[in-house]
Simulated scan of single mutants.
Amino acid sequence: MDRQLQQLIEASPDAILVTDREGKILYWNTGAEHMFGYPAAEAVGQSLDLIIPENLRARHWDGYYRVMATGRTKYTTDLLTSPGMHKDGSRISLEFSIVLLRDENGEIDGCASVMRDVTARWNKEKTLKKQLADCRSQLT
Rank of each mutant, 00 (worst) to 15 (best):
D88N: 15
L79S: 06
M35W: 12
D134V: 11
L8G: 07
E54A: 13
G37Y: 08
H86S: 04
E125W: 04
E42Y: 06
D14H: 13
A11R: 12
P53I: 03
A32N: 09
T77G: 00
E10N: 11
I25D: 03
L128D: 05
R72N: 13
K74P: 14
A41K: 10
G106Q: 06
L56C: 01
E33D: 10
F36G: 06
D134N: 12
S97W: 09
L17C: 10
R66I: 01
M115T: 02
K24W: 10
D103R: 08
E107L: 14
K129T: 05
T81R: 12
T140F: 10
I16N: 03
W61P: 04
L128K: 04
T19P: 00
G45L: 08
R3A: 13
M115K: 03
S137A: 14
Q7C: 06
R66T: 13
D62P: 01
I51L: 11
G110H: 10
Q138L: 15
M68R: 02
M1I: 10
A41S: 15
C135G: 05
R121M: 07
L79V: 09
H86P: 03
G89L: 06
M68A: 01
H34S: 12
M35P: 02
V114M: 14
P39M: 04
E104Q: 13
G45R: 08
E54G: 06
D62A: 14
E22C: 03
N123G: 00
I51A: 05
V99I: 07
E42T: 08
Y75D: 03
A11C: 09
L128N: 04
S47E: 03
H34K: 15
F96P: 01
A32S: 11
C111A: 15
M35A: 10
W28I: 02
S12P: 10
Y64L: 09
Q138R: 14
D103F: 08
G63C: 01
D109R: 13
L79H: 09
P83D: 14
V18H: 05
I108D: 05
Y75A: 01
Q138H: 09
Q7A: 15
L56V: 00
D103G: 07
L101C: 11
S97I: 11
P83H: 12
Q46E: 14
L8P: 01
R66P: 00
L26K: 10
N105E: 14
R121P: 00
R121Q: 15
S82P: 00
R121F: 06
R102W: 04
A43Q: 06
L132G: 01
A133N: 09
R136L: 15
